[in-house]
Design a protein around this nucleic acid. Sequence first.
DNA 1: CGGAGCGGCGCG
DNA 2: AAAGCGCGCCGCTCCG
Length: 587
Amino acid sequence: MRLHPGARRGLRALTDPGTTAGSIAPWIVVGNAGGGLALVPIAADGTAGERLLIERSALAREAARTDAATRWVWSDTSSWYPAVIAEGVRVSRCHDLRLAHAILRDSARSVGADALRAAVEWDAAASVADDGPSALFDLDPGAREVPHDIDAALAEFARQRAVISASAAGLRLLVAAESVGALVAAEMHAAGVPWDGDVHDEILTGMLGEREPGNGLPARIESLAGDIRGLLGDPAASIDSQPKLLRSLHRVGVAATSTSKWELSEYEHPVIAPLLEYKRLMRLFTANGWAWRDEWAPEGRFRPVYVPGGVVTGRWASSGGGALQMPRQLRPAVRADPGWTLVVADVAQLEPRVLAAMSRDAALADSARDTDLYEGIVSRGVVSTRSEAKFALLGAMYGATTGDSGRLVPALRRAYPRAMGLVDDAARVGEEGGVVSTWLGRSSPPPSPGWRALQGHAGDPDATEIDRGQARRAARDRGRFTRNFVVQGTAAEWALAWLGDLRARLAALPHVDEADAAPRSGALHARQAHLAFFLHDEVIVHSPVAQAQQAADAVVLAAEAATRLLFGDIPLDFRLDLQVRVDAAKG
DNA sequence: CGGAGCGGCGCG
DNA sequence: AAAGCGCGCCGCTCCG
């Protein structure tokens, strides 16, 4: 593909290592122009350079030539980056205008954001540009997309830079972290989780029986259904319909009010055990059975669609494939390619440690040092068992008021007043209709008009006790949300920093020989350890065996770097449970 | 007939 | 056993 005359020369002048540092463009904005693309370098002082036109297919090549310090600015990573990845090219840094817009628009710490908020064309949810098998069915013509043309991108980038430079430093960091997350999400989708369909099949067959043609119910489920109908004394009993099953249970003397497994297990009746087993197997069959494997892991890779920023707190969501719900019983099907291995790491008690860090609660940090945090709480005599410590702490962060969890919270409040004060304050602000923010500055959404109306009406002279009760309940609901928001959202920020730093460390590892490649991971990842999976506080790195130790070191160093980046030098470590998994050779 | 709502359950 | 946060997806039911 040929470059527009001048484009090649222009970019080289801006990005050649031989040029002076000052002439390297900190940003290159990309967007549609005519039938092709325009690239516009932006200098540190914000002045735009010459507009360079290239053909659409030349983006990856231009990205490959760009200095690693340059940040690519584009409307939406999931719209631009997959094509670059497909050419085997990695972008070091980017600025995702859609994600940044959402953060800056809603943040209580944004300064001078009126013009940005007025640019409503950037208020678009993630466009799930899936290249997977179900893409044809995912098309949603009504869904709004952000603008992808160069002029819109330049204008929005100028608005965002103005807000960022006027606001607290945390927002700049948050926008960078959110953007690198978008890069990681696209790369992990391309690389996929190495998935051994044979192991998956063995698990399914062992639990359910052989696969039946046409996705019919497997033998074990059919047999359980027969047992259950017999024990219910009704050969036609419907097990999958909650109201009908409830009526059948009542007829045989099980007075349950729901069919949840928690409630059913309270009852002593011969039908309970097979019924719980039926529900367990049916869940596996429908959610992660053979049909799921055919659609989501057909060629030895499970490719979930990650949606960065898809949760209000800043956590990622997922779309299709149930990436956030892969059941633990199927974990054995995640297996490295031959000659490769998996480095699996999760952060021990991420959210409580984040709470200790952001509240600067020295006592809680001390309880977490060099140990399992829950054990640390026990050893300081706050509560008496690890299990109690766990439920007390989760209860404190989720706003539990009743049950054993709620009962234990006061003990924590005495032992860790700063940490508990932080979440209690967040809850109070939420109950009063205020907005809370994470450590870096992502803010909770304001209360809905309905919520405000409810609170307003409760203060009216003609309000009934029912009105006031409803308003109180809604206020407490919102308080629990904001209480959790600050912790969950800051944990998501720590995880983004971890991911971003780890990604850079892995990218710096040497390539292995072509003969040792993992071609199904795609051109960008076939010859180098790479991120393969991420879930809130856990990563899986797919690594050539030869560089597994370096990959494991990178995971640990990235966690330390993330902690320093967010919280500076604090006397608190974020402990990892880390294993380098050696899969037995397949027989 | 398709979409919204709900109960239920998987994950953190 | 724990009931308190955030999600996505399943099958069923209800409704227009």
